[in-house]
Nucleic acid binder design. Sequence first.
DNA 1: CTAATTTCAGAATGAACGTTCCGATTTGAT
DNA 2: ATCAAATCGGAACGTTCATTCTGAAATTAG
Lengths: 193, 193
Amino acid sequence: MARLKEFNEEDALDKAIEIFWNKGYNGTSAQDLVTHLGLSRSSLYDTFGDKHSLFIKALQRYQKKSYDDVSSVLQKSTNIKETIKEMFAQAIIESFEDKITKGCFMVNSTVELALHDTEIAKVVNDNRQKMEEVFFLAVKRGQELNQISSSTDPRLLARFIFNNYSGIRVLARSTGTPKQVFDDVLKVLLSIL
Amino acid sequence: MARLKEFNEEDALDKAIEIFWNKGYNGTSAQDLVTHLGLSRSSLYDTFGDKHSLFIKALQRYQKKSYDDVSSVLQKSTNIKETIKEMFAQAIIESFEDKITKGCFMVNSTVELALHDTEIAKVVNDNRQKMEEVFFLAVKRGQELNQISSSTDPRLLARFIFNNYSGIRVLARSTGTPKQVFDDVLKVLLSIL
DNA sequence: CTAATTTCAGAATGAACGTTCCGATTTGAT
DNA sequence: ATCAAATCGGAACGTTCATTCTGAAATTAG
């Protein structure tokens, strides 16, 4: 029996993901959050606790969303190699679109925070394991379907794909990188699958 | 005809590299710099200007040092593939050593700053081009010496090597990553060279 | 020795930070 | 209608930030 929230909590979290993704944890001020989320300081703190708690919630939400997305796309796929190609191609395209989010929020958080923040490190490691497993199962299936070369252990290929994904997500953070550089990386990656 | 500096400017810059590498630009306070460099605020500001100027100088010094190192090692090499293997193996070993610097200062700076700081983006892009060129020449020579497969354009391989290097430098920032993950990435990378 | 010049340590500065608090407002149950 | 509970905008909090200032110490040329 009380007043209702004027905003949707999940929408606000998505906004938090955006601004943290764009500016990083230390680069985002409380004022940035107030402005970008469109709510008052009190609402923000009442709903999400302090800045660190909000960041963790945002990163966990991002993790779940991107994991669910990758997982769903790969599980539905009937041509694994082609799907992986499309996933990377999409990541490359997004790097050149005009939006505030570039690269990968998880990669950014790994680099900025994992070394000193064990809570972040846990999310990051959990994500790596989960993503590796999804790629492992996909690659294994791709090999069984003769869509991916069986000359290499699918576990190794899964880790290798993830590593190259991280790499291009770093490249994506720097504006000046020509698209050809991304395309060349993808081309070589696909040549070994 | 005046008092002499009590510290060596290059040593101080190396210390600045360390602390910025460890904590990032936004995560490093002026007090952190004073403490880690072992000089007073006034000396710090008199010598290097403001925090941003110091960061740029530190990053440029790091760029030159790591470029000179990679360049020299590859140019001296008589077995390119083996040398690349050793370079990656060394990077992996360092990720597990007990020191304050993990991963790559250039990768960290790319992720944290390149999107909003054109001066940083310039250093980062310059570094990518220079590194790519060194790897390109090395791979080309490796192919001529039949140490590296000639089935792929050396330009593409150079970009691919750099991308995987970035990837493992991201992984290195998170403490929990098992060494086997790094080793597997390196194994696959070497298998295509 | 003196004068000129620069470094040094640490205090002082104002701005920006994350966070808390206040009081008005809105809601739904009694 | 009244009351309890939670939201809201925005002011206020103490702290930390990057940077500047102050004045004593050190150095060297004349």
